[in-house]
């Protein structure tokens, strides 16, 4: 499988740096699970991160830091891990997405939007929102514009808009300049993962991430 539409530099760098909103991280991680080329590119952006960290002015650790770390290692107590559910079954949904859904497509809790179109909003922190969309084969999503950035990742089937034709693994990056009417391909129902940061602009999200947010 060759994925044709890849992430741009800003998103790859943002993911490598860890500064994207959670909803965008989810789209990027899902895309990376489907595109070896994007994943290889990510490696280079992470290398840049390593270089930047190396060159950042260091700040002295507390006096007993090493001793305390060695003591924690020897006590054998693991660092508490955040909960993740990682099913092993490959499916339509890439693993990072299955973690959010609690399984593959059959576990998605769809809500009808009319005209056969369905959506399921996924729980993410921050103001960017992630949702799964199901567009019946051959059907159209109402024409819409974007107030912020919208990322759309195809997971099943395909869709076309005036930009191009998008298939599994492809990602479309749309901003406020783009008004489009995606139409699902005739071969099967199209399932996409979409994330939007509207009505916020991209830049206003980043400072929010620097606040300790536990749940919104």
């Amino acid at each position: 499988m060759t994925v044709k539409h890849l992430l741009n530099e800003q998103l790859l760098m943002g993911y490598a740096a860890g500064i994207l909103p959670e909803a965008f991280d989810l789209v990027v991680a899902s895309h990376l699970s489907l595109s070896d080329e994007s994943r290889a590119m990510l490696g280079s952006y992470e290398a840049v991160g390593g270089v930047v960290m190396e060159e950042t002015e260091s700040v002295e650790m507390t006096a007993d830091a090493l001793g305390s770390v060695m003591a924690r290692i020897k006590s054998g107590k693991a660092i508490p891990q955040k909960p993740t559910l990682r099913p092993t079954k490959p499916g339509v949904l890439p693993e990072p997405l299955q973690d959010y859904v609690g399984g593959d497509v059959e576990k998605i809790k769809w809500r009808s939007l009319g005209g056969g179109v369905k959506q399921a909003i996924l729980p993410t922190s921050g103001k960017a929102q992630a949702r799964l969309l199901l567009i019946p084969a051959g059907a159209a999503v109402p024409d819409h514009g974007h107030r912020g950035t919208e990322l759309t990742l195809v997971l099943q089937g395909s869709f076309s808009d005036k930009v191009d034709h998008f298939t599994r693994g492809d990602i479309e990056i749309a901003n406020e300049d783009l008004n489009h009417q995606p139409i699902a391909g005739p071969e099967e129902d199209c399932i996409c993962l979409a994330a939007t940061d509207a009505p916020l602009r991209f830049n206003s999200l980043i400072p929010r991430l620097l606040q300790p947010i536990f749940r919104i």
Partner: peptide, 30 residues
């Protein structure tokens, strides 16, 4: 990954974990 790159990615994930309720979405292990 070089040592610095690998350590950077661990530190980055620790930072995100500290800010969020759940672990950050990571790509599948290939």
């Amino acid at each position: 990954a070089s040592a610095a790159t690998w350590i950077f990615t661990i530190a980055r994930n620790k930072k995100i974990d500290a800010f969020r309720r759940a672990a950050r979405p990571e790509p599948e292990d290939l």
